[in-house]
Amino acid sequence: AEIMKKTDFDKVASEYTKIGTISTTGEMSPLDAREDLIKKADEKGADVVVLTSGQTENKIHGTADIYKKK
């Protein structure tokens, strides 16, 4: 799966169907969080990951919607 910015995804959204939401939390780098989200998306058969939230304090927390091409 590839990560797309919401603004970029909005241009092609009609080509995809939302298949779920994924999240990651833990003591990790932003890059590790990104890789974890991609891994989870791949496991669910998603083609595209669109980040919906991200937070960093002591731990990273990120959520994303996942989509499959129609």
Rank of each mutant, 00 (worst) to 15 (best):
I38S: 03
T52C: 13
E2S: 11
K70H: 07
K68C: 07
E2R: 15
T52P: 10
I60G: 12
E57P: 11
M4N: 01
A13M: 07
D32M: 12
S53Q: 10
Y16T: 02
T17E: 13
D8Q: 05
T7C: 13
T21L: 04
G54C: 15
D32I: 07
T7R: 08
I3M: 07
G62K: 12
F9C: 02
S14W: 13
G20F: 03
Y16K: 02
G54F: 15
T56W: 13
L37S: 01
Y67M: 03
S14V: 09
I19A: 03
Y67V: 04
A46H: 01
Y16S: 02
D32V: 07
Q55Y: 15
G54V: 11
K69N: 04
D42W: 13
I66T: 01
D42F: 11
A13E: 06
I22D: 03
A13P: 00
E43T: 06
V50Y: 04
T17P: 02
E2K: 15
K59D: 14
T7S: 14
D10T: 06
K39D: 03
I19S: 02
K59A: 14
M4Y: 05
G54P: 11
D36C: 12
N58C: 12
I66G: 02
K69D: 04
S29K: 08
G20W: 01
D32Y: 07
A13V: 07
A41S: 03
K11Q: 08
M4D: 01
K39T: 06
K11L: 10
D47L: 04
T25F: 11
S14N: 10
S53N: 11
R34N: 07
T25W: 10
A64S: 04
I66P: 02
K70V: 09
K6S: 09
Y67C: 04
E27V: 13
Y67F: 07
T17L: 12
N58T: 12
G20R: 00
G45S: 05
I22V: 08
D8P: 02
M4L: 05
K18N: 06
L31I: 12
A64P: 01
M28N: 07
A41Y: 00
H61Y: 14
T56C: 14
Q55L: 14
D42L: 13
E2Q: 15
E15G: 09
A41W: 00
T24L: 10
K39I: 06
N58R: 08
E35A: 15
Q55T: 11
K6T: 06
G45I: 02
E57K: 09
T7H: 12
I19D: 02
K69C: 08
E27R: 12
G26F: 09
D36S: 08
V50K: 00
S29N: 09
T52R: 14
G26L: 13
R34K: 10
D65I: 06
D36I: 09
T7Y: 08
E43W: 08
I3L: 08
D47G: 01
L31N: 13
I22W: 02
K59T: 14
T25Q: 11
D8R: 03
K70G: 06
L51V: 08
K70E: 05
D65K: 02
G26S: 11
G54T: 12
K39A: 08
E15C: 15
K11Y: 05
D65P: 04
H61I: 15
R34Y: 14
E27C: 15
Y67H: 05
A41V: 00
K18L: 12
I60S: 11
N58V: 11
V48E: 02
T25P: 07
T7N: 09
T7D: 12
T63V: 08
I3Y: 05
L31S: 15
M28A: 07
D65A: 03
T25L: 09
S23E: 13
G45H: 07
L37H: 02
K40V: 04
T63I: 08
D32A: 12
S29P: 06
M28K: 08
Q55C: 14
D42N: 15
D42Y: 12
E2H: 14
A64D: 03
I19F: 03
I19E: 01
A1L: 09
A64I: 04
N58M: 10
E2I: 15
K18W: 15
R34E: 10
G45A: 04
K44N: 07
M4P: 00
M4G: 01
G45Y: 05
G54R: 06
T52S: 11
V48N: 01
A64N: 03
T24K: 01
A33Q: 10
E15T: 05
I60D: 09
D65F: 02
K69P: 04
D47Y: 03
S53C: 14
I22N: 00
Q55A: 11
D32L: 14
S23Q: 12
L37N: 00
T24E: 03
T63Y: 09
D65T: 06
K59F: 15
Y67T: 04
V12F: 05
V12R: 05
K68T: 05
I60M: 14
D8Y: 04
V12P: 01
A13R: 13
D42V: 14
V49K: 00
S23M: 12
K70L: 08
P30T: 12
S53A: 10
E57T: 12
D36Q: 11
K40T: 04
S29W: 10
F9R: 00
H61S: 11
G54N: 12
K39E: 04
K11W: 05
V49W: 00
D10Y: 06
K59M: 14
K59S: 15
E27P: 13
K59C: 14
I60F: 15
I22C: 03
K40E: 03
T25V: 10
T24A: 07
K69R: 09
I3T: 02
V50H: 00
T52I: 11
D10E: 13
D32W: 07
K18P: 05
M4S: 02
I19Q: 02
T7M: 10
D42I: 15
I38V: 07
S23K: 10
V50C: 03
I60K: 09
K44S: 08
G20A: 04
V12W: 04
K11E: 07
A64W: 06
A13Y: 07
A46K: 00
A1V: 14
